[in-house]
Design a protein around this nucleic acid. Structure first.
Length: 271
DNA sequence: ATGGCTTCTCGCAGAAGA
């Protein structure tokens, strides 16, 4: 079977419902991981999303900020959620695809929203940047109780770091801009190396090619200026690499009505 | 020219995003 997994920072799930519907009907992912849902659990729009075919929904939300969700056509089990690294933010949820789903059974999906890190890339003066680095350290340790182990597992989400020179519109211009500083890129590499995670997007789109998933709201003509960054990622445990099919970055979604500043990414997995 | 915008909140201005 082929499973399509999508990741999208939608910057408010309630405001973005029309384009979530449009994306779900276009790409028809089996699993849709959302970040920045910005809604309390009790106000989550379950029924609108079930109408799109996602009968199995697991969420971790909070008021106003952050929040992550896994929407699935297949049953989910063994959900982990809750604060991943101090501050009590809703920035991580994981679940396993349940039994009775054939070859997909047992696959674990991790959905992360890594802290953006504020403006100043110095942990000594900027607590948000300090939190970001600590969060990445927590991911590196791969705490067993969170099941962050690189076996039959997928990590997706807004990791808020553009690691390669080709993941930003200008490597030189962004070297001191949070999301592309060397200290972040190195921490990012440590997280990936610690688990042996495979960068699925760069398995399909050559590292020499520019690749972005985010364009600032402040750019009046985002497409022509094209000052993007690749902040959203899909990682696979090495055992899943042979089954990797197409990767798609839905750049067109940035031009939809009332867009998020991030676009969705999908990965096909043959299981 | 990375902030020119966009989101949230017991809003009407400020914090946060990246």
């Amino acid at each position: 079977m082929t499973l399509t997994i999508a990741s999208w920072n939608i910057n408010s799930v309630r405001l973005r419902m029309p384009i979530v519907k449009r994306f779900a009907e276009t790409a028809r992912p089996d699993i849709l991981c959302l970040q920045e849902t910005k809604v309390r659990d009790e106000d989550f729009p379950f029924s609108d999303l079930r109408e799109l075919g996602y009968d199995h929904i697991e969420i971790s939300g909070q008021k106003g900020y952050h929040g992550v969700a896994i929407l699935s056509r297949l049953p989910l089990e063994e959900v982990t959620r809750g604060p991943f690294c101090r501050e009590g933010h809703a920035r991580h949820i994981s679940a396993r695809i349940g039994a009775g789903t054939g070859a997909a059974a047992g696959l674990r999906i991790h959905n992360f929203y890594v802290p953006a890190g504020g403006d100043e890339p110095d942990p000594a003066v900027n607590p948000k940047f300090d939190h970001k680095l600590d969060f990445l350290d927590a991911m590196t340790r791969g705490p067993a109780e969170r099941h962050l182990v690189p076996e039959r597992a997928v990590v997706v989400g807004d990791l808020n770091i553009a690691p390669l020179e080709t993941d930003v519109w200008s490597h030189k211009a962004l070297l001191k801009v949070v999301s592309h500083t060397p200290v972040e890129v190195e921490a990012f590499a440590r997280v990936r190396a610690a688990g042996g995670w495979v960068d699925a997007m760069r398995e399909r789109i050559p590292p020499a090619e520019k690749l972005y998933t985010w364009w600032s709201y402040r750019s009046p003509d985002w497409s022509a200026a094209d000052k993007g960054r690749r902040l959203d990622h899909v990682w696979l445990s090495p055992d899943l690499l042979d089954g990797l099919g197409a990767i798609r970055v839905f750049r067109e979604a940035r031009g939809w009505d009332k867009p998020s500043d991030h676009v969705p990414v999908t990965a096909e997995l043959r299981l």
